[in-house]
Simulated assay, not measured.
Amino acid sequence: MDLEAVRTFVAVTEAGQFRQAAADLSITQQAVSKRVAALERTLGVRLFIRAPRGAELTIDGRAFLPHARELLRVAERAGASVRPGRRPLRVDVITSRSAQSGLMRDFHRAHPGIELDVMMLFDIETAVAAIRSGAIDASFRAVAAPGRPLPEDIVSVRVLDEPLQLLTGPAHALADARSVTVAQLAGHRIWMPGLTPGTEWAAYYDDLVAEFGLTIEATGPNFGSDALLDTIADTPALATFMGEHSRLIWPAGHGLRRIPVTGPTPVYPHSLLWHRDSPHPALATLRAHLAATTTGHDAVGTWVPDWVLPR
């Protein structure tokens, strides 16, 4: 159905005259008549009756009018959904409880007028492909994993170094420690079922294991953070790593401990990725907000893999 013809039909209805509708649309009266006639042929009905006072809707015209207005509203929403500055800023984070989600919540509080669409893609390849296709505007990732440099049209800026913490149950051998060194973790079982081979976070923990001689087990299905916390609380021999800014909630009876890791402190490097030619005006606001509110990159006493891009 020709939307311009539908728009002309609504204009004639609101103006009550073909001549006034032509003036409102900045077209000729002949063009108005042709559009209405074409729409009537498409629908197979008459929409107007010519009357001394102007154009009056037929019974079919009255039936069609609310649908015509809805068609125009849908068309406007469709256009706005892909028009920079009119659609939400689309940003990818790994999980809803991650530090990345926290950064976006802080941004929303600072800029409540910017509409956001936060989504969760899987790995860096999926995120980069979505950025290049325009499906999203930006993504938080650790870059660049070994052997996988970013395409030339993708820009990356490191925005947050998140210290790792050891999470244990109340009966774990290190549960009462105020902090632990990386060396103290050697020989302890660290369970992380979410380490999917080939992802940037798996590459990070592979290097952590190789650097400090740790034991990380990724066995078993990943049933999510709640199931992980239940298992850690009930199993004295197991611990896991969590980011310092990860939002965790568990039953009071779990008695879980979050213990800082030092000597050096492993930090997970979060970077913001976007397309070099991204047109969305809110992206610059997000980048400026992150630059002004995040600090602590490459601090003394911290560790990141050699492949992590510098600040």
Rank of each mutant, 00 (worst) to 15 (best):
V209G: 15
V182R: 00
A218D: 14
R178W: 05
G220C: 12
Y205H: 14
H172D: 01
T196F: 06
F212N: 02
D176V: 02
A173D: 08
T199Q: 05
D206L: 12
T215G: 15
P221Y: 09
T199S: 13
T199L: 10
A186P: 00
G194C: 08
V209A: 15
W201C: 09
A218C: 08
R178P: 03
T219D: 15
V182C: 11
I190Y: 06
T196M: 12
A186N: 05
A210V: 12
T181I: 04
E217R: 00
A173F: 10
I216H: 08
Y205L: 12
Q184V: 01
G198N: 07
A203C: 12
G194Y: 13
H188E: 01
L185W: 00
E211S: 14
L174G: 07
E211L: 10
A173I: 08
Y204Q: 00
G194W: 05
G213H: 08
W191T: 00
S179I: 02
A175G: 03
H188T: 02
A218E: 09
A173S: 09
H188I: 01
A186W: 01
G187Q: 04
P193R: 03
P221A: 12
F212T: 01
V180N: 08
A202C: 11
D206N: 13
H188D: 00
D207G: 13
E211A: 15
L208Q: 08
G187F: 06
H172I: 03
I216N: 14
S179A: 14
